[in-house]
Write a protein that binds this DNA or RNA. Structure first.
Lengths: 203, 203
DNA sequence: CCTCTTAGCTAATTAAAATTAGCCTTATTA
DNA sequence: TAATAAGGCTAATTTTAATTAGCTAAGAGG
């Protein structure tokens, strides 16, 4: 019973490291601790395993999007939190965001797999953009709009501010995805970025 | 003679769309207009084709890095250009940078292929980081330092400013790489970003 | 305790792709 | 002008990976 889940887990790990086309069912089986033919007791093909992973991604996304989370939309909950937020708090929040993106095991594998497969499937491309552009930008924009309305930030285009806040976080994350040893360096830059952002835009 | 080059060209195109593991030598041959076995008159294996592409990338990089170009280091040439640069000029430059990255055929395929293969090879990871992080940031940092020294920009950390200038360009580019129909939207945001950046940091 | 299902295995089988063999034409050149 | 090399082809061959067949042990439930 557990095997069925374990297969998805192992497969996602492998797909996120090498990409679908470079992973063999034998490797998945080995990771699970069974032989390749036994996989077929659980999924009817390699493609079906991939599809199940995607399906799981969509479910998870829908579930989490409904709740509060990084890409969520709870402007109102958060607005209280960020009302009169200090620079240090902003730093803590940015680093939290970054660290979650970078270290959450599922998030991380999911992102790497999408990175690899994004050009081969339109749906994956859209999923990627939604998760790492549309939603974060939408969310941050809402937040910044509130901060502006509350007089905490200069009255500039909140959408552009969101882009300027988020893009460096994203870029540093991609660096760490491919060169994990650069995390310390990235964190340093990240902190400087947020402090400078805060200083420049604070009213 | 020409065939040998054409093979690399076709292979790079295919690798950048599907990734090495999902491309078959027959497809490469078809693109070139010959049959698969004829490929072996030019390269001893599929892997050798991939390696030749990498080799070409390195050569090109070394050649271009020596000269002036996007990721180059000619602070001094450019400093004259940017001395007392207007906001409009900055916009034109940013959009030029973005458009080059996005539309230059070789640049574009190269980037997509690296995007797909970056996690499977340390060398590729480093190449990617160098090309799309280290070098642009280093270059922009130098430029901004000059602008600061010349009193055109506020005296903030130039390295962070470079990150804040470049990261949105990069992020928007990745969006267009996977969803080319969003280019107009991206260009709009890009222009707003640069104008706002310019306004915030200008002395 | 019998039987049926589940989930594993080994040993095929199939399918697909990479690569090799070996032939043919053209073009160069000694 | 004969020899040779380059570069193409078709027809194998090899390799590799996915999938199927069919056996078996374990355990659930009547």
């Amino acid at each position: 019973m557990d095997t069925k889940k374990k297969i998805l887990e192992v497969a996602l790990t492998l797909f996120s490291e090498k990409g679908y086309g470079n992973v063999y069912v034998g490797q998945i089986a080995e990771g699970v601790g069974i032989k390749a033919p036994s996989l077929y007791k659980h999924y009817k093909s390699k493609q079906a395993i991939f599809d199940a992973i995607l399906e799981e991604m969509r479910n998870r996304y829908d579930k989490e999007a409904a709740h509060l989370n990084i890409t969520g939309n709870d402007f109102f909950v958060d607005s209280k939190v960020y009302n009169n937020i200090s620079e240090d708090e902003l730093v803590k929040m940015g680093i939290g965001l970054f660290s979650f993106f970078l270290h959450d095991e599922y998030e991380c594998k999911f992102r790497k797999m999408l990175t690899i497969e994004q050009f081969s499937d339109k749906e994956l491309a859209e999923l990627f953009s939604r998760q790492y552009f549309n939603e974060p930008i939408k969310y941050q924009t809402g937040l910044l709009q509130l901060l502006i309305m509350q007089g905490n930030m200069k009255n500039e285009d909140a959408n552009v501010m969101a882009l300027q806040f988020f893009a460096p976080i994203y870029l540093l994350m991609t660096v760490c995805d491919r060169e994990p040893q650069r995390e310390a360096e990235a964190l340093q830059m990240l902190e400087k970025h947020i402090r400078q952002f805060s200083r420049m835009y604070k009213e």
